[in-house]
Design a binder for these strands. Structure first.
Lengths: 237, 237
DNA sequence: GCAAAAGTGTTTCCTTTACACCCATGT
DNA sequence: ACATGGGTGTAAAGGAAACACTTTTGC
């Protein structure tokens, strides 16, 4: 039977229902210094002292999950007032993932442009390649890898790569995002045709820049396209 | 600061942490009688008496989330001993989604072949088209629609359509899955070439059947391919 | 034989790929 | 002038769409 129907009185029901702590953990990715990097928290106390963990915290009783994610993005990650793409990644809840108590964690994936370092000394951008070699707290290595794979997959069939770019960017900067996130070089000319030809992916600003050297490049900002059809497929492994 | 570090003593920490009930809700989809259908629970008591809801229940304290999903698939959905594809869908947790108490719900998506009706009278297969018109309990309409959209999207770039088929199936039966889930007709001949040409999607059994009429069709079972490259794209809207 | 569905062949179109080549700037 | 990266043209390869046609069963 549906458990809501077990007890007529709410207080009786409350007694019988197991309750657990719920956290939100943040996988915030960016491209900086030619590497895919994630925002990490350096733990100085047990458990997992010396390990890295993802920024996160408990969900408040009256708080929606996306609201908690935004709040923690500001409070723990130090990224207040930054509009970055945030989407739910997955939920992790095996019983002993936290050695002290049962914690169910809803992971959110954030994609950010290259931002200045956090004001908090404990919060660092670190290359994903390094992180996966270092010891992680809890199951945060797995969560990070799931976030990275989600990002890689979404570049194929959505316009999300622009979330890694500043408000105005060139086609070459967008291409570098793909190359670094996927770890494969792309042909600049075919890439240019593909993304400028996709409807509502890029909106020209009319301005140009020479910040990448060479001939001035058109500046674009994100269009309102969500999907990229046909997709841009990675070379198969 | 990271909340784990707020209190050294575990019991103090436990007092300060908000705790909520966690449920698993199941979106179990199948194709039956030429329609995409979902397993629903008919509610006969408030709240939402007379509405349909998704089968689900509370996660036990010592139970992993996929284990809870499997248990509830047996206990509430009446699908014990049936190996069906189960994957996490998303987590829903806005504060008043259950009027009685805070409940965070982890939704799982199940894809099943056409099974006999459940032994439980309260559990019914209902066409998705009908469900979205009828009043739903809680936010289960949204969860159902998210599950349907996930299934539709995954048919494009994975071999998951076979999860809707019995252990042995013909190419035409697989095609009907695509046609019904997507709601668009597909060319039988091009479809045949596409799926039989994809590596490890279909494994021929050597047997044939005439259950669909006409010339005998090869029987296949699922290969071990996860992904379908290049993908089979729906016609754009 | 005829209907029905399985499966193959073929042509056309479109996308991707690879790469030659020109363009516009900084130094 | 020349290096550097931006951007266009173009031909070849590959996959998708459309559809004529053959195959193999049940009746």
């Amino acid at each position: 039977m549906w458990p809501y129907q077990v007890a007529e009185a709410d207080n009786v029901q409350r007694m019988s229902v197991p309750r657990v702590a719920v956290t939100v953990d943040l996988v915030v990715l960016t491209v900086r210094e030619q590497r895919l990097s994630a925002l990490t928290w350096r733990r100085d106390r047990p458990p997992y002292a010396g390990c890295w963990s993802l920024p996160g915290g408990f969900v408040q009783l009256d708080e929606d999950l996306p609201v908690a994610a935004s709040r923690l993005m500001a409070e723990r990650a130090g990224l207040a007032d930054v509009r970055i793409h945030l989407e739910q990644l997955a939920t992790y809840g095996y019983p002993d993932r936290d050695p002290r108590q049962r914690v169910v964690s809803v992971a959110y994936l954030g994609l950010a442009p290259d931002l200045p370092a956090s004001s908090r000394a404990q919060v660092l951008w670190t290359a994903v390649d390094e992180l996966v070699k270092d010891p992680a707290a809890f199951d945060h290595r797995r969560i990070l890898l799931d976030g990275v794979e989600r990002a890689r997959a979404k570049l194929e069939y959505t316009s999300l790569a622009a979330a890694f770019c500043p408000p105005e960017f060139t086609v070459a900067e967008l291409r570098r995002v793909y190359e670094i996130v996927w770890g494969t070089p792309l042909d600049p000319r075919n890439f240019h045709r593909k993304v400028t030809g996709a409807d509502h992916f890029l909106v020209p600003t009319g301005r140009t820049t020479t910040r990448d050297g060479g001939r001035p490049a058109q500046l674009y900002h994100r269009g309102d396209a969500e999907h990229l059809r046909p997709p841009m497929l990675r070379q198969r492994a």
